[in-house]
Simulated scan of single mutants.
Amino acid sequence: MLVVALVLGVPQLVEQITQIPPIAEAIGTFESPIHLPPWANISLVVGALAASTERALRLRYNWLLDGGLFDGED
């Protein structure tokens, strides 16, 4: 759920940030290829909040999420 929120939300956020006039003048604007309706964006935020809260409260080790993939073992 968090990866989906990241993939769908970041381009939309970057588009909004590059619409700010000083930033648009300095680096230009970005047009997001993803345009979700408001209900989908709200659902995305609620789902990401629920998933991150569950992850934080569970306090269990996961090799993929907690850096075990790059721990230096050969």
Results as ranks from 00 to 15, higher is better:
32 S>F: 01
67 G>H: 01
71 D>N: 15
30 F>A: 06
69 L>S: 13
14 V>E: 04
23 I>R: 07
28 G>R: 00
15 E>C: 00
59 L>M: 11
20 I>S: 11
55 R>T: 04
72 G>Y: 01
67 G>Q: 02
34 I>H: 05
65 L>A: 15
7 V>E: 13
58 R>I: 07
31 E>T: 14
19 Q>H: 11
68 G>L: 01
4 V>L: 09
65 L>T: 15
71 D>T: 02
28 G>P: 01
12 Q>A: 09
3 V>F: 07
30 F>G: 03
26 A>Q: 14
11 P>D: 08
57 L>Y: 04
61 Y>L: 05
74 D>Y: 08
29 T>Q: 12
36 L>N: 03
60 R>L: 01
52 S>Q: 07
9 G>Q: 04
57 L>V: 07
56 A>R: 12
49 L>D: 10
70 F>A: 13
51 A>H: 03
40 A>T: 12
57 L>P: 00
23 I>K: 06
72 G>M: 00
16 Q>C: 10
72 G>W: 00
2 L>H: 07
72 G>F: 02
48 A>M: 10
1 M>T: 13
15 E>H: 04
2 L>N: 12
21 P>C: 05
21 P>H: 04
55 R>G: 01
36 L>P: 01
23 I>P: 11
22 P>L: 02
4 V>S: 12
14 V>T: 11
61 Y>H: 14
51 A>F: 02
53 T>K: 09
